[in-house]
Amino acid sequence: MHALANPARFLRIARPATSWLLLVGLALAIGGMVAGLTLTPPDYLQGETVRILYIHVPSAWLGMAGWAGIAAASVSQLVWRHPLAAVAGRAAAPAGATFAAICLVTGSIWGRPTWGTWWEWDGRLTSMLVLFFLYLGYIALGSAERERGGEGRIAAIYGLVGAINLPIIHYSVLWWRTLHQGQSIGLSGSSIDNSILWPLPLTMVGFTCLFGAAVLMRMRAELAETKVEARMRRMGTA
């Protein structure tokens, strides 16, 4: 990680990585979604509504993975003072918030025909909504600290403490009785039939690549902005 502490070296890697992630992500995500819409059979109970899982599951994963990334960036910011950690955290937050929102919206659309309700305050749904609000708080804190010229330490502490919501989301369906079903895919296999399951890894990897591309783009944009601000200041004093 410390090899990337130099922003110039980071940019040399990030520039080509952005386009590759974007290309591969688009191909896999679109391929997986088209396959999920046309090639897979409907579910025996849910019918065609099952197809929303090809978007819902990757969004849930990235909503949670995004915060795991923020937590990792927070640790490296607090302990090692990594110069890019705060930039990475600020870059990941809007992408993670977007996927958490997609997860909530698609879940609600699925819940109406399946459960008979748009929204219920059960453990899984509530903890996911809390994650979305945590993202909004992080975005506000991060941009406020950046404007003040701070190191981003307050946002890092917040990002670390907010990570306790991740195990709560994951285990909510195991610890508590919830309306949301238990997990389908575990270490011991999957309770989703293979004929329905196979496009899911495509969209999972595809959306993850798109997430990575979005984070790298935002990081590059913020580094460029910092450079511009520094140059403007120099020109002002000269």
């Binding site: 059979p41 409907p42 579910d43 025996y44 109970l45 849910q46 099952v50 899982l53 399946t114 459960w115 008979g116 309700t117 219920e120 309306l179 079903q181 238990g182 997990q183 389908s184 309770s191 989703i192 039939d193 004929s195 329905i196 399951l197």
Partner: peptide, 10 residues
Amino acid sequence: LAKHDERYMP
């Protein structure tokens, strides 16, 4: 409310 379980199949 109907509770769906974690099994999905054709």
